[in-house]
Design a protein around this nucleic acid. Structure first.
Length: 316
DNA sequence: TGCCAGGTAAACA
DNA sequence: TGTTTACATGGC
């Protein structure tokens, strides 16, 4: 069964001279595997990878902070505060930054039960060796996670990245630093005030424009919030709550549960990427049927999200 | 060029 | 309740 440990600020170390935080890493962890996932698209706009450093502009309250993340020995993660839009940097901001990175790298999950399970699974045995130390990289911001899910519906990933970039560069927050531009995902408040035409102009379909603005409005009005969803403490309830939202079907609900709400048992069964990965790994002539996938996943109980994430890496 | 793409809502039986 | 179809557009 999955053990999820919530973030404990007391494990943080702060170095004043370098403006750096360090987080101890759970094992197994391989930084380069996670970097491999993060660099799968050359059109990603929400972070830059420069050698072994990941630069990312993140929103913390009303503030935006540019951070650089790296890890030398896989024993701890180093987070340097590169630049803050507000000069003052209270301890609470440092903690929020660390919490964000904690969730981003899924540091609260003990992977050992998954690896134990994988040893006896024909499919997972190979991928857990090939991608040993990979963690389920998340999307801590609920609005971003839901938006990315909606954007990715029924279009190829290349185009999805293009649409995301247009959305971010049109409505997001930017920071210039040393001649480079860093972007943060638009706030729900910003998208909530748009007309669908503002998004169809970026090649969003009419329906996706409506879905996205609809979700933004729910969040801007306080009717939908990550904290509220998590308070339910029951993933079936969270899924039900998400499915009530227009534009959120079983795939997107489980995608969000998997990458934002940290449910290791979330399972986007209809995912074409998963289907193609299974087809490839099993050398099938055609994509597996849903009953076949359910059968293959019988041994993954409680870890379907991790199984899916590892299998994605076979193709992307 | 035609099929496919990290699906969903709405119509229909 | 379960199945089919329209949506819409780019990638390859």
């Amino acid at each position: 069964m999955k053990q999820y440990q919530s973030f404990d600020p007391s494990i943080l170390k702060w170095c004043e001279q370098t403006s750096s935080l360090t987080l101890p890493l759970p094992q197994p962890f391989r930084y380069e595997q996670n970097l491999g996932y993060l660099t799968r698209s050359t059109n990603e706009c929400l972070f830059h990878v420069d050698n072994f450093d990941i630069y990312k502009l993140i929103q913390v309250g009303d503030n935006h902070v540019l951070i650089a993340v790296n890890s030398e020995y896989n024993t701890e993660l180093r987070i340097q505060i590169v630049h803050s839009m507000n000069a003052a940097l209270p301890i609470s901001v440092r903690e929020d930054v660390a919490r964000y990175v904690w969730e981003w790298f899924d540091l609260g999950t003990d992977l050992t039960p998954f690896y134990e399970l994988a040893k006896g699974d024909l499919l997972l045995n190979q991928v857990t060796q090939d991608f040993y130390g990979l963690r389920l990289m998340g999307i801590p911001d609920l609005f971003e996670a839901m938006s990315w899910g909606i954007i990715g519906q029924q279009i190829n990933l290349t185009f999805a990245y293009t649409l995301k970039r247009r959305l971010v560069e049109t409505f997001g927050t930017q920071l210039e630093w040393k001649g480079q531009t860093f972007w943060a995902f638009p706030t729900a408040e910003r998208i909530a005030e748009l007309n669908p035409e503002a998004l169809t102009a970026l090649q969003f379909t009419g329906k996706k424009a409506e879905y996205l603005i609809g979700v933004a409005k729910l969040m801007a009005e306080g009717q939908l919030a990550k904290e509220e969803l998590l308070r339910r403490n029951d993933f079936a309830e969270m899924e039900k709550e998400l499915l009530r939202i227009r534009g959120i079907g079983p795939w997107t609900a489980n995608y969000v549960l998997m990458r934002c709400l940290r449910n290791a048992a979330a399972f986007p069964l209809a995912d074409v990427g998963l289907h193609n990965a299974l087809k490839h790994v099993l050398s099938l002539e055609q994509k597996p049927t849903l009953p076949h996938i359910r059968q293959l996943a019988e041994g993954w109980k409680g870890w379907e999200a991790y199984a899916t994430f590892y299998l994605w890496r076979v193709l992307y």
